[in-house]
Amino acid sequence: MAKVISLINLKGGVGKTTLTVALAEFMAAVYGLKVLVIDIDPQTNSTVALIDEHEWKRRNVRGQTLLSVFKDSVNKYPVFSADEAIIKDVSNVGGGIKGLDLLPSSIDLIEFQDEVLYKGKGVTQDSVMQLRNAIADRINEYDMVMIDCPPDLGLFTQNGLLISDYYLIPVVPDILSTYGIPQIVQRINRFKKNTASKISPLGLVVSKYRAQASVHKGQLHRLKSSAVKLGYQRVFSTIIPENNQSAAAMDYSASYQNLQEKYSYNRPYQEYRQLTEEVLKYVKR
């Protein structure tokens, strides 16, 4: 049975997409797991990090993205097909990593969400079940499912949370990136109670860490000491330092023979591999 992890932070720029993609690639390539990435962020960053932008555009025009999951709820004739939308063996490593699949996002989700809000429909019990209903027949073909959520707790994020076993919060250890953590935990606890979902906190992953920055050191200490009290369970031991290679690795136009080449042969390759091992250790499979 698949284990599902949503990655979420209310602030952008914390390395959420990089972490989603890296964990998925290492789980598939190093640990031999069958992994599905679901990109529910309208920014489509995970999507274009794993497939060519022209391929994404072609699929978007044909309705072979996550957008169709939500449009089907208002259209008379449903068009979404998981078989057609899920792209197999994605990544810019080795021409694609076997066992790593993608359900791509669409920038048109922004317009759809605005339309829903404009019509005053809001988020309902039925509307947060759309993703679950759409992929119910396929999800358990995978060992792990990684969901890249937008930086909010709206309709799309709630669809991801409903099917998730865990949520993971990537943070940069500064004031702005960590300020909303209690709100995330509280809102998800309330969502869990209201929907009877099974989601639990997996922990915080510190990224873009600058060892020489006193603010980062101080915030890291506070995050570790507050983990149980604030309810996010733990701060992962593996810390992802600030580096240019991680950002460059998300450019699909560059191709790599293996993960060592993509993430550099020393760092951050070792950090991502260690973090993947640590995440899998805490996931009950």
Rank of each mutant, 00 (worst) to 15 (best):
V4H: 03
I8G: 09
V14D: 05
L19D: 05
E25M: 08
V35E: 13
L36R: 11
D39E: 15
D39P: 09
T44F: 06
S46M: 00
V48A: 00
I51H: 02
I51Q: 01
E53S: 01
W56D: 03
N60R: 07
V61A: 05
V61H: 04
G63N: 07
G63E: 09
L66C: 01
S68T: 03
V74E: 10
P78K: 07
V79A: 13
S81P: 00
D83R: 12
I87K: 10
K88E: 15
V90M: 06
V90T: 09
S91K: 05
G95H: 03
L100C: 02
D101F: 01
L102V: 08
I107R: 10
D108P: 04
L109G: 13
I110H: 03
F112L: 12
G120L: 07
G120K: 10
Q125Y: 13
D126S: 11
Q130W: 09
L131W: 07
A136W: 09
Y142G: 05
V145L: 00
P150W: 03
D152C: 06
T157N: 09
G160R: 01
L161A: 06
L162P: 07
S164C: 10
D165G: 07
I169W: 06
P170V: 09
P173S: 13
D174Y: 10
Y179E: 14
Y179C: 06
Y179S: 11
Q183C: 10
R187A: 12
R190S: 13
F191P: 14
S197A: 13
P201R: 08
P201V: 11
V205Q: 05
Q212R: 09
V228E: 15
L230M: 12
G231N: 11
V235N: 08
F236E: 06
S237P: 00
P241H: 02
N243D: 12
S246H: 00
A247V: 01
M250S: 09
D251V: 04
S253Q: 04
S253K: 07
N258W: 08
L259Q: 14
Y263E: 14
Y282F: 13
